[in-house]
Amino acid sequence: MNARVKDFWRYFKRRKLAIIGLVLVILFFFIAIIAPKIAPYDPGQINVEEKLIAPCSRHLLGTDNLGRDLFSRMLYGSRISLSVGFIAVGISIIIGILVGSISGYFGGWIDIILMRFVDIMMCFPSFFLVLTVIALLGPNIVNVMIVIGVTSWMGTARFVRAEFLSLKERDFLYAARAMGASDTRIIFRHLLPNAMAPVLVTATLGVATAILTEAGLSFLGIGVQPPTPSWGNILTEGRIYIFDAWWLTLFPGFAILITVLAFNLLGEGLRDALDPRLRGR
């Protein structure tokens, strides 16, 4: 195992962009964790006398229409946006792995029904589905996470299934079966670890997509609800003040861009480093 990690790292560290992505991701994590320590103000602190102040020494990124400090709100927003990204992807990966492995391992009619269902889910423009389901559950941070997760697991399910199908016929599985290993044991000890590499890549890229989706939902007014400061709704709330306060539009948009970019670059690097076929040269 250690050799595999070393091997992986050898290839990974050559990818400069991926390293930049990794550094940025770690940085954003760090910021999210220490947000309460470094935020100069309470993100909910209203001070109407200081509304719409441009970036200055007291308010690094300026203030919003209720006089809340944008810098502090952005710091706290990183927690919301990152957790939406991670939890949504977590949900999506779990569903995807479950469906994919059941389908791939057992095959037969279970496989047919599940794969038909995956087909149907993939046919819907996911955004419509998210829109309707959010309307159904009501927009709050938990539901946004659930909905993004529930509508994005199909890709994972497909390739976990494919991976299982190809692994199923390998010798080591026959050996495991001959030794009397149970289905669960075979799935979790033998098959899944082998399928984990692409799952990790999808998950990383998925975080990026989830953060973007959350911002899009907030833009339409049905994402994480204010006063919770997610980057998406800081951006949306600031949008109407675009002529008076450019900072309310620029900074959150930029933060989303950089974070999403970081995850995408990292994911790409992981894909390259984990996929032996791509290593060639």
């Binding site: 962009l17 911002a215 675009i242 539009t249 989303i256 861009l257 950089i258 999403v260 790409e268």
Partner: peptide
Amino acid sequence: NTTTFFAYLGISIPSFWLAYLLIL
């Protein structure tokens, strides 16, 4: 690397944000 970077920049931009900036 440059095209890779720009490709990922493209995937990562919130489209409505870019749209607003372009309209302005």
